[in-house]
Amino acid sequence: MRIIRFSKENTIHLAAYTDDKKIYLLPYHDFFDIVRLADDQETTPLQIINNMIAELMPLELNIEDLDLLVPIEAPEVWAAGVTYLKSKEARNYEATGGKLDATTFYDKVYNAPRPEIFFKSTSARTKGTGQDLYIRSDSHWQIPEPELGLVLNKEGNIIGYTAGNDMSSRDIEGENPLYLPQAKIWRNSCSIGPAIRLAETVMDPYQFQITCRIFRHEKQVFQGSASTGQLKRKFDELVSYLIKDNEIFDGTILLTGTCIVPPNEFTLEDGDRVEIDISGIGVLNNPIKKQPKSITVG
């Protein structure tokens, strides 16, 4: 069972999207309204939704017909770094100017008890499937980072899973690790979607298959695949460090790191398109654009 949001005739709708591809409108505006109702009734979101749709008729629409939005307006998006071996190797390459056998602080964090956790985005900066992501204007080496996202409640419980694109400026981060916020956070630098997979419907979250495809002039120029089974750390471990002495909010997203990195000579260009396909969740599809001209405030 997945949760989607879409716009139709200037109205935003919340809907359940079943595994047999049926869409049912839900009488709520926000996924966490259902989560809180389930808590109040001492049941689960899945049971609440199943009870609702048992009395409803599905829409006579396919998901491809819908103007999908972010499945949740996440108040904050956080991300974990260097959680896969491939990510560690890529960060080492950036930080050493291309030395393949060098050892850096990325090796240390990969093996350290404490993971890397950093702030990634706010709801205003986070886009949904079909919406443009922007290339940072002062970077010359940019890539998408396809990641599984954990949908958390304010207690840090994993309520669902979504796909995320943690856009990254490899040259800026590689120049100096203190530049990480600039390498990760800018306008339209993050996307999530297209749906939330209810956590209670996932038997093993370490069996998600992630595929990233990049298209240039609608010709595929890159494809890579990975599994969450390749993670160095467990999801509960990452969450425990996020919430340690920290307040989070219902709908917070924690991106769990990437294991798919394009070749070192690759950088995104204006007009590219990125697809991130996660089994059981769907395809997060974003066009890549140059930054629009900034408005000068006098």
Rank of each mutant, 00 (worst) to 15 (best):
V109H: 05
K21C: 08
F119N: 11
L25T: 00
Y17V: 03
W186A: 07
I214W: 09
Y161M: 03
P58S: 02
L254Y: 02
A38R: 01
R213G: 03
I276D: 04
E275Y: 09
G130C: 11
K219L: 14
R170Q: 11
L268S: 11
S169Q: 11
P177N: 09
I276K: 03
L37G: 04
L148G: 01
C259G: 03
E218K: 12
D20R: 01
Y206A: 04
F266E: 04
S189W: 00
Q207M: 14
N176G: 00
Q207I: 07
E200Q: 04
V297I: 15
D270C: 10
I48Y: 05
V239I: 13
P287I: 12
R125N: 10
P181F: 09
A124E: 13
L46G: 09
V283R: 00
A102C: 10
E145P: 00
W186N: 06
T104V: 08
A38I: 00
P177S: 12
A80G: 10
E116W: 07
I172N: 06
E269P: 02
D245N: 15
V151N: 14
P194Q: 11
G271W: 06
I49C: 01
D272S: 00
N176Q: 02
P292C: 08
D250T: 09
A54W: 05
R273I: 06
Y179C: 13
D40N: 13
N285F: 03
R36F: 06
K219N: 14
L69W: 01
D272E: 03
E145G: 04
I23T: 05
L25Y: 03
V239M: 05
Q230C: 14
N286H: 06
T258N: 06
F31L: 15
R5A: 07
S121F: 09
